[in-house]
Each structure stands twice: as structure tokens, then as C-alpha cells.
Design a protein around this nucleic acid. Structure first.
Length: 804
DNA sequence: AGCACGCCGACT
DNA sequence: GTCGGCGTGCTC
């Protein structure tokens, strides 16, 4: 007799362990670790993951697995192990770790229904009787709307009704019907004559098979091609001449796109030097981490492509991670063009079903390469030959919700197991990675020249304070307008970049200075042109834009700050004849809208592309010769120790968008702090100096990479509770950490209240702290009751990206 | 997370 | 005396 250890789908501290189940006789040999099952849990039924098969169980009153959801495990043994590791590393629940590895379609949904337990409907209360006219089950949600719960409860007590717990799958395999011939072509030709003459349509169908000499065809195609209805097809099937088969098909998001085969390019000297050690590790089957530091346009991608080719030739698989926002069609094209149908693509633009299908291709070993965003790092490959993380510095590789993992850490963990290399690529590596390469923990591969030998575009820093002094109160400097006009005249294109983070349009009274804030969060509301609404970006609260100031009744209340809409309006005023494409969340909301706008810009249907973060990455248009950054320093003032680093990265990234082809490019950076080193050094493309300068600061302030961080955020509706809990935590930490570890706090979070919950935090800065995870676990355990009963929340982020 | 069980106050 | 509030503890 075998038993299954199951991790159940209940994300709670008390259930964060395996539960044992009997395996029914008929599945004894079938159930293996990594399969999803449905199990009884208390009174209900829920989904779970089998993580182990055992011959004994300590527990006496075992229940049996009620259903199998997979016949092939969806988690490989490696992924089960990885899940355990993730759980410890990020202090998340086991179930959350497993769920993070799978496409959303495989997560269960739960529903409750009421079932009739008697044959005689009239035993029920009259009011309930009509609901069971068409069957003996009714959806509970539906019933709740019209009937009181009490009445239902009574009926359950009397044994007339029962609650049925249902587990539903979200997405599923898409299938089509295939019609096959059941006879030889020769026999079919004979059959045409044998069929009754009035069976015209049937004859037509058979002729279609014989004249085209085909064995099978999709039903929907056959109906069109042979111009018939499925009644005739059914008739032939029942006669045994044809047969029907169900076939799983993939929703292919790229099916009507043609990818021209691209050939490998000749590598230049630098690229050759970079790829050699990489190829060596690939062929020798050893684990290593490479940092490929290559300036924009230095041809990193070609190095990726050729090393992947090597991996695939060795019969192994590869994962390429790309930041969500640069997973553009251009990017996909490069991989599909080289490797065709061997590639699966995973990103958030796909529907749940499409993601599931791409994932299935990986599981069934139909592809050898995955290109995708963060979660693609969990691709269920079993024979990994290499993992590439492009734009390694991107903060989106860190998941900001549980499990708070960093894709880079997962990549290195998996690569160690598979004895294969990890390649981290960037033009502006994170300080962490570059520091590791200096210590030779990562092997540094450097690409200093651009492939086309062009120098980087000239960058001009414009001091906006000067502009203000000389009477220019607009958001465009004289120089920027001049250069934009110049491009318009020459028929060249420009890109304007608005860095909006931490600088959205808030509403302020000009008389008393009152700023309208969210009633539930301590943050100012954002003005939305659409319907004159004020919106909170944290809790979704909405209200109407007032006509007068709520404080002083002044009419001089208006919105400040710079949204893309506002910039567009202003721009049209200054350059009335320019054609502008605006790209932001509003214009790219719909699926495919993003791509359409870019195509239009590429076709030169506009002169100026205006947008936020999303246009900073990977765009490559030959006629763009001017890039303008409207406000370079907004991000600098966020409460974030990485603010300078992010600013440097962004400016470097954006500058790389200009003059990528024959035409030379120019960059304008507008700022109120032109002397800031991250702006100065970005304009000189001087990563090394930036690195040295920033490292010194990090050292002085005890930040990464000199120290590791852990951020604990406590939240509760009452501020006194929050403060006292955080205080207790800090005291406990102080008693349990090493001497050189620093503990900051308790302090209010940068956003002190979200959704009516007060937030306090404490930051742990440590170098070596062997037992930190254990200590943090103890803290959670200590507050466990309060967390489940008293609405208390403690969030722990190990190596947080920001302090928010 | 759900859900049952169980112990106290305010009503028919 | 009963209904129903939510604190406590369990789920293989």
C-alpha cells in the first residue's frame, strides 16, 4: 500500500505542511510526485500537489485522494526541490511556491453548490422547491441572492440538502476534431459509386479525400472545403468510412505571423572573445555565472543566439529571460527567426489559455527554448544547458508579491543543479553583479564597441532652473524645442521620454496649498482626465474632481505634475504641425495596442513618440535621431537607496535609443539637478566612474552590495497596534542577531497608510547572519494567532528592491 | 483559508 | 430558556 504526501491549496501557516492520503487501489501505480490531485480536506475538497510517495504513514485516520488532475506530473522532481528551497529562501508558503511555478490556468477555483439529498422535492420548504425543478443541484452563490442562509441551514440540518464542494479548473486544453479516412484511397473511389445517388454531399466529401489524396483533415476545414454540413460527415462516420479523432491543439499567439529565417552573423573580435569561454562551459557541462557587460548596440543578442545554438546542438534546452516591457515583437522575432518552432514565448500579453499552451509545449518537450519574463525561469525543462538573463539590472526580475523571489537567484540555483552556465547581460549591470565579477565570483565578459562602430550619441544636459530664470516656464527647454523643430524639418523622428515614477499629477489648491489625498491611504490622489476623476493608485479609490478647494473654498484648485496627456497637449501648442503618438497605460491598455502604436511609429506615421518607461527598452527605429528626457531627476528623490543607480540605468538605456543606424543621434536630458553624478556620468557613458562613486556611497551607508537587507513591514488598522508590534519585533531581532548587524526602526513606511491600514517597518542590514531565516520564522510564529484573528499583517521581504 | 465547536450576552 | 455573537482549534 502506498500513500501520498500532499501540499494542500490553503495558504496559511497552520496548513503549510504535507498531509498524507491513501491512494485508491486503481491508482496505486499511477500516482507520482509532482501531480496535482483533488483531496478531501475537512468538509471540503481542494487541490493539492503530491510531493512524495511513501509506504507508511504515521497518521491513522487517512482519507483517500478523490481525483487525479494530471497523468504526467506538472512538477518535475527538480521543481519540487526548487519549491522547498524557494519556501525557505523567501519565507513563503509551500503552496505559493508551487503555484508560482505553473501557469495560472492550472490553479484551481472553488465553488459551492447545494445538492438535493431526497428524491421527494416536496419535503423541502416551498420557497426552495422551484430551484430544484431542472436538476438536483443549484449554485450556492445564486441561491444566496434570493433565499436566506438560515433557511438553507435548516434544510441541511434536516438532511434534505447538502453542500457540495466543487473544484474547477480555469483554462483547459483546446481541442479540435480531426476527420480521418478509414479506408484506402482506392476503396474510397469505389465507395463513391456504391453510395446511394441521393447522398450527394457524402459523395462530395469522399471525393474531397480522393482528389486531394489526403488522410485526414480538421473538421472545420473540411466543412468549408467540401462545402457540407457536419450531418453528412456524421453519416459517413457512422458507416465506418470515416472516423473522428480529438486532437489537442495550441492556441498559437504568433500563428499568422511569418518569421523570416535569420542566419548567424559573423562575430567581431570582442564577441568572439566573449563567446569562447561560454561555449567552453556549455560543452564541458560545468556551472558558472557570466556577467556580460556590453554597451547598447554591442551585439549581446547575437552572442546569446549563437551560444543557444550550441546548447541546442548538444541536445539540451535553454531559458532566456527578458524584462516584461522589452518582450516586444522585435525581440520575439529575433529568437523565432533563428530557432523557429523550437521556441516557446511566455509573457503577460498572452491570455491564460495561450500561456498554458506555451507551457504545455515545454512540458511535452516540443520546444527546446523558452523566451519569457520572470516566471519563465520555472520552465519545466529537465535537461537545461544554459540560462540567459538579459537586462540583468531590471528590477522586474524580482517578484513584488509572495513568493518574493529574484529570478537571478532561481536561475543560479537551477543552473547549479543542471551543471550549466548562467549569463547575465546588461549595459548597466547592477552594482551587486559587477562587484561579484570584480571578485571573480562571476566571470566578466566585456563588449565595449558597438557593432556598427558608431560612437554613442552626444548627450546635452539642460539645466531647467536656468530655463526658469530666463523666463521659460514650460516643460520644454528652448534647446529641446529647437532640436525637435529641426527633426520635423528634416523628416527625422524623435522620442520623448517622461519619467513618471513618483511624479504623477496631483491636485493642489493654489491659494492654500492643500493637496487632495486618498481617504484610505496617505498618498495624494492622481488626476485622470477621463471623466475628471481622481484616483488612488494604491487602493483604487475614486472621486470626482472638486470645483472648489475643500479646505478654503478657493476656486484656484487644479492639477499639477506632468502626465503624458498633459505633455502631449503642451507639445501640440508649441509644435502644432507635429504628429505625436502617445504611449502610456491609457493608450496601450488593450491587447496588441502597444504593438500597433510602435508599428505606426516605425512606418513613420508620426514624428514624435511620447511615452513612459515602456519606450525606454529595446526600441530600434532607424530614423530616430533625437531622444529627449523631460525630467531626469524625478526618480532621484524617491525613498530608495537604488535611486541613483536606477536613474543612471534609465538615462543610459534611453540614450541608446538614438542614432542606432546610419544617422547620428542626439540626446537631451532636462533636469533640475544637472550636477548630480548619476546624470553627469550617464551623459558621459561612464559606467566605471559611476560604479566607483556609487559603491563608495553604499559602503558608507551600509547598503548592498556591502550589506544584505531584509525589510519587515507591519500593518494593522490601528496605529498603536502597529507601533507596539514593530517595537516588539525590533527588540526581539536586536537580541538575536550578530553584533555587526544593523537594525533600523521602527519607523513609519514611506507610504504610512494603505487601504486604511497603518504601516510601520524595520530594516535589517547584515553581512553574515546564519540564523536570520530561523529568527524571522520565529517572529511570524509568535504573531501567528494575531495575524489570523486580529487582522495583523507582517510582510517580510528578503533583499527588497525598494523600501516602499 | 474555511468551518465546526463552544462559551457568553440579549431576546422571544 | 434559545439565538447568535465571534474566539479557538483543526483540517491527513
Amino acid at each position: 500500500m502506498k500513500y501520498a504526501s500532499v501540499i494542500v491549496d490553503v495558504p496559511a501557516m497552520q496548513t503549510d505542511r504535507a498531509f498524507d492520503y491513501k491512494i485508491p487501489e486503481e491508482w496505486q501505480e499511477l500516482v507520482t510526485p509532482g501531480m496535482r490531485v483533488i483531496v478531501p480536506f475537512g468538509p471540503r475538497k481542494i487541490q493539492g500537489f503530491v510531493i512524495e510517495i511513501k509506504n507508511h504513514s504515521e497518521f491513522k485516520r487517512l482519507k483517500a485522494i478523490s481525483e487525479l488532475l494530471d497523468l504526467t506530473p506538472c512538477l518535475t522532481s527538480e521543481l519540487i526541490q526548487l519549491g522547498q528551497w524557494l519556501t525557505e529562501k523567501t519565507l513563503c508558503f509551500k503552496i505559493s511556491a508551487f503555484q508560482a511555478m505553473l501557469p495560472a490556468a492550472m490553479k484551481a477555483k472553488y465553488e459551492k453548490a447545494l445538492g438535493l439529498t431526497t428524491d421527494d422535492v416536496t419535503e423541502l420548504v416551498e420557497q426552495l422547491q422551484p430551484f430544484f425543478k431542472n436538476g438536483n443541484q443549484v449554485d450556492l452563490k445564486e441561491l444566496e441572492q434570493t433565499v436566506s442562509l438560515k433557511m438553507i441551514q435548516k434544510e441541511i440540518e434536516q438532511g434534505h440538502l447538502e453542500v457540495i464542494y466543487k473544484v474547477k479548473q480555469k483554462g483547459n486544453k483546446k481541442t479540435i476534431k480531426i476527420i480521418k479516412r478509414n479506408e484506402s484511397l482506392l476503396r474510397l473511389t469505389e465507395l463513391i459509386k456504391e453510395l446511394p445517388a441521393n447522398a450527394k454531399k457524402q459523395i462530395e466529401i469522399i471525393s474531397y479525400f480522393t482528389t486531394n489524396e489526403i488522410n485526414e483533415i480538421a473538421l472545420q476545414d473540411l466543412l468549408i472545403e467540401a462545402n457540407t454540413s457536419d450531418a453528412s460527415v456524421k453519416a459517413l462516420i457512422s458507416k465506418g468510412i470515416l472516423k473522428e479523432e480529438i486532437k489537442e491543439v495550441y492556441r498559437d499567439p504568433y500563428q499568422d505571423r511569418h518569421f523570416e529565417k535569420t542566419k548567424r552573423l559573423i562575430l567581431n573580435n570582442e564577441q568572439q572573445q566573449a563567446i569562447t569561454p561560454l561555449i567552453k562551459t556549455i560543452n564541458e557541462n560545468v556551472h558558472d555565472v557570466f556577467l556580460m557587460y556590453g554597451v547598447t548596440g554591442s551585439g549581446k543578442t547575437e552572442v546569446y543566439l549563437q551560444s543557444i545554438e550550441e546548447v541546442l546542438n548538444n541536445g539540451k534546452e535553454a531559458i532566456v529571460l527578458v524584462p516584461e516591457i522589452s518582450l516586444t515583437p522585435q525581440m520575439v522575432h529575433r529568437f523565432k527567426g533563428r530557432f523557429g518552432s523550437k521556441v516557446a514565448v511566455l509573457h503577460s500579453g498572452l491570455s491564460t489559455g495561450e500561456k498554458y499552451d506555451e507551457w504545455r509545449k515545454i512540458q511535452r518537450k516540443e520546444v527546446q527554448l523558452v523566451v519569457g519574463a520572470r516566471s519563465a525561469i520555472f520552465a519545466p525543462f529537465e535537461n537545461l544547458g544554459m540560462i540567459i538573463i538579459d537586462e540583468e539590472h531590471e528590477s522586474s526580475y524580482k517578484q513584488e508579491e509572495n513568493p518574493r523571489y529574484h529570478a537571478r537567484d532561481v536561475a543560479i540555483y537551477r543552473a547549479k543543479l543542471h551543471k550549466c552556465p548562467v549569463v547575465l547581460g546588461s549595459a548597466t549591470p547592477t552594482l551587486e553583479s559587477f562587484a561579484r565579477s570584480k571578485k571573480n565570483v562571476y566571470k566578466l565578459l566585456t563588449l565595449k564597441e558597438r557593432v556598427n562602430k558608431r560612437s554613442m550619441p552626444q548627450v546635452d544636459i539642460i539645466d531647467m532652473r536656468e530655463e526658469l530664470r530666463s523666463g521659460n516656464r514650460s516643460m520644454f527647454s528652448t534647446s529641446l524645442i529647437e532640436k525637435l523643430t529641426e527633426r520635423l524639418e528634416k523628416g527625422e523622428q524623435s522620442v520623448l521620454f517622461l519619467n513618471r515614477r513618483g511624479y504623477s499629477s496631483f491636485v493642489m489648491c493654489r491659494d492654500c496649498g492643500f493637496v487632495i489625498q486618498c481617504p484610505h491611504c496617505d498618498i495624494s490622489l492622481t488626476y485622470h482626465r477621463h471623466g475628471q476623476q481622481l484616483k488612488c493608485h494604491y487602493c483604487g479609490h475614486e472621486e470626482q474632481m472638486p470645483n472648489v478647494c475643500p479646505e478654503c473654498q478657493s476656486e484656484h484648485i487644479r492639477f499639477f505634475g506632468t502626465g503624458t496627456q498633459k505633455v502631449e497637449e503642451e507639445l501640440v501648442k508649441v509644435l502644432p504641425h507635429s504628429r505625436i503618438i502617445r504611449m502610456d497605460v491609457d493608450t496601450t491598455g488593450r491587447k496588441g495596442a502597444h504593438e500597433k502604436l510602435l508599428t505606426r511609429f516605425g512606418n513613420k506615421e508620426a514624428d514624435i513618440l511620447l511615452g513612459t518607461q515602456m519606450i525606454a527598452k529595446g526600441l530600434d527605429f532607424p530614423d530616430v535621431t533625437l531622444v529627449g528626457v523631460l525630467t531626469a531627476d524625478t526618480m532621484l528623490h524617491l525613498p530608495d537607496f537604488r535611486a541613483s543607480e536606477k536613474t543612471f540605468q534609465l538615462l543610459t538605456q534611453v540614450s541608446g535609443r538614438a542614432g542606432r543606424h546610419e544617422l547620428p543621434g542626439e540626446v537631451i536630458i532636462q533636469t533640475y539637478t544637472p550636477e548630480h553624478y548619476s546624470i553627469q556620468l550617464a551623459s558621459q557613458y561612464d559606467y566605471d566612474s559611476f560604479y566607483n562613486h556609487e559603491m563608495q556611497l553604499r559602503k558608507n551607508h551600509a547598503y548592498p552590495p556591502y550589506y544584505y537587507l531584509a525589510l519587515l513591514t507591519v500593518s494593522h488598522p490601528e496605529i498603536t497596534k502597529v507601533v507596539s508590534v514593530t517595537e516588539k519585533i525590533v527588540q526581539f531581532l536586536r537580541r538575536n542577531v550578530e553584533n555587526e548587524t544593523k537594525i533600523l526602526g521602527p519607523v513609519a513606511s514611506p507610504i504610512p497608510r494603505i487601504k486604511d491600514r497603518y504601516r510601520y517597518q524595520c530594516m535589517v542590514k547584515y553581512k553574515r547572519e546564519k540564523n536570520l531565516h530561523e529568527t524571522l520564522r520565529k517572529i511570524i510564529e509568535h504573531f501567528q494567532q494575531e495575524m489570523s484573528s486580529n487582522d495583523l499583517m507582517i510582510a517580510i521581504d528578503l533583499s527588497p528592491n525598494t523600501m516602499m
